[in-house]
Every structure is written in C-alpha cells, then in structure tokens.
C-alpha cells in the first residue's frame, strides 16, 4: 500500500510525535523513497527461511532469584523533570 500523509500521521501518533505540516511533507517524501528501497527485499524468496532475532545462538540466560537492596530513591528521582513525595509526577491520567 502506498504511504500517504495519513500513514505518516497515524505512525506519528503511535510514536507520540507531533509533526508540523512541513515535517510531514518532508518525512512523507523521505519515507516513500526509503520504503521503496526496502522493497528490494521482496526479490528474495524467504518462504523457508527462519527469522534471526538474535545473531548469537545462546539460550537460557538467567539470574538467580536473589533480592538485593534497591536503589536510593533520591538517585532514581534525580533526573525527573517533576517529582513529588518520592513519586514521578505527571498531568492527571484519565483512565
């Protein structure tokens, strides 16, 4: 399916980005070009090929179930744009 301005707006919303009209038209142009290049992959028959998500074939990497003292909360909150009472603070969440 062709990429349209709607597509850009939809994925921008999914990725929580606000784009200006100018950005939208620029990114639409770029995306069309880039996706057209990606379509090169369609030349390849991969019907019997397993996908590789991890390039090194190791399995079962675990840690033991041991609890250790947590972090000083001041350090966790030190980078927060806004905090209160030891919590991160955001505008009211409507559920």
């Amino acid at each position: 399916m062709e990429i349209t301005k709607n597509t850009i707006e939809h994925i921008a919303n999914l990725s929580r980005l606000d784009l200006t009209e100018e950005e939208k038209s620029m990114l639409l142009f770029d995306m069309k070009q880039i996706i057209a290049y990606m379509d090169k992959l369609k030349e390849l028959d991969t019907s019997k090929v397993k996908p590789t998500a991890h390039v090194m074939q190791i399995n079962n990497v675990f840690r033991e179930d041991k609890s250790e003292p947590s972090y000083p909360k001041e350090k966790l909150l030190a980078n927060a744009p806004l905090s209160e009472g030891g919590c991160f603070k955001v505008p009211k969440v409507v559920e």
């Binding site: 996706i35 990606m38 992959l41 991969t46 090929v49 397993k50 996908p51 590789t52 998500a53 390039v55």
Partner: peptide, 14 residues
C-alpha cells in the same frame, strides 16, 4: 512484509 522479512534476510546474510 518488512520486519519479519528483514529478520529472514538477516538469516540469509549470516
């Protein structure tokens, strides 16, 4: 069409 295909091509490249 894209993501899974790319992972498959990744296998071919490997």
């Amino acid at each position: 069409e894209y993501y899974k295909k790319a992972l498959q091509v990744r296998t071919l490249i490997k």
